[in-house]
Structure formats: C-alpha cells, structure tokens
Amino acid sequence: MSSSIAVDVRDLVKVYPGGVRGVDGLSFGVAVGEIYGLVGPNGSGKTTALRIIATLLKPSGGYVRVLGFDPVTEATRVREVIAYLPEEAGAYRDLTGLDFIRFFLRARFSGRRLEEAVEEAVRIADLGSDIRRPVRGYSKGMKRLLALSVVLASRPRLLVLDEPTSGLDVERSLRVRNLVREHARSYGATVLLSSHNMLEVEYLCDRVGIIYRGRLVAEGTPGELRARYSARNLEEVFLRAVGG
C-alpha cells in the first residue's frame, strides 16, 4: 500500500446477523491529508463502513487498511491513530463537560500534554461556564460540540466523522464544518466523513464517494462529479448516478 493512502477499502462486505448486507463490495481510497466524504441516503452503508474502519465492526469480506494497519488484527494500532465521532455521539449525562473532556483525553495523553489537550478541547467546545455543568442540561448542539472537541483535541492522524452536523442548526453546522476544515488544514490530518447532506459535502470535501445500497456508484471531486453527470449540484449527481 502506498504511504500516501490513509484509508484503503477494497471489495468490503459486511453481512449482519440475520443476513442483512450492510455494505456489499464497497471500494474507495482516501489520500493522506484529504477530506473525503461518503454520501448516500439512510441505510446505504455509510455508518457500517465507518464503524469497520473505526474497529467497531468486523468485516465479513474484503480488504481494509487504515494508515497501513488492519482494523481487525491490529485494532489497537488503528485506535491509536484515529479518532471517531459516532452519529449522535453523546456524553455521560451526570458528568460535567470538563470531566467528560478530561476522561477521554486521559486515554491518550498525560501530564502537561494532557492539560494542553484539555485546554484545546475547552476552547474548541466554546461552551463558556456551561463546561462546568452536568451534561444532562446540554442541548443536542452543545453535546455535539463537546464530543467533537474531544475528537479534534486528540490530534489523530485520521478523523472519522459520522454525520458530524446531523440534527444541528445552521449556525452550529457552519461552526462544525469550519472547525473540521481548519483542523485538517492546520495539522495535516486526514478526514473521512459521512453525510446525507450533499451541500455540506460539496462545501467541505476535497473528494466525494457516492454510496448506494452498500456499493460506491461514483467518486471524484465535487467539480468532476458535477461535470461528469452534467449536474448543477451533488444532489443531481446522486440522482443521476443511482439512475433516479
């Protein structure tokens, strides 16, 4: 595998107990330092693919490498270099936001480096005095920012973000997108995100993979895809790619 490839997925298959196929022959690659978006409708296999890459699920078949490591046999190595933000990630409701940040960052840092990471996460979350209140009083947007702050302050080589702006208002969605983009640019991190929001992906991602029924049906930069399908935006690209 080339050292310039952060995520290498080939012919990935995931069959859940009961026979449902989560992904069915999915192939795509993400270059180091790139922001790559997997887009597709609900149930298309985005979350399944991200969970396999994040070592949470085991593939039924195919080939997956994350920064050169196998997520099944080298799961701990993969966890050391990635940070995963699940869809609707929450927090322990009876801990304060600060307790939550400190707990998660302690798994990666210690001593002075830990304090610096905590400070960075508090700055990213930007929750003011609410950071010292129990999470149970937080809004959905506040919880999302809290979880994202931990993921970004972990300074991983690969950020795996599942629907990072799902359920957020326009203002917070913009803030999250800007944070992700700034982080990737500042630290050279690779970002793999999923979304069913085509406009978001068009704004944020260097390259896009359109996933439908567990397979990749189109891939390229937003501009390439628009030109290839003679479309005005990614929504039209998607509809034409899946034959709608």
């Binding site: 994040a54 949470l56 966890r79 995963y84 609707e88 927090a91 931990v150």
Partner: peptide, 10 residues
C-alpha cells in the same frame, strides 16, 4: 451514545 467513542479509544 458515549459507548462507541469509548470503544475506539486506545
């Protein structure tokens, strides 16, 4: 919804 984040820690 904190479990998945916990499980992906090293």
């Amino acid at each position: 919804k904190a479990f998945e984040m916990l499980l992906t820690l090293p």
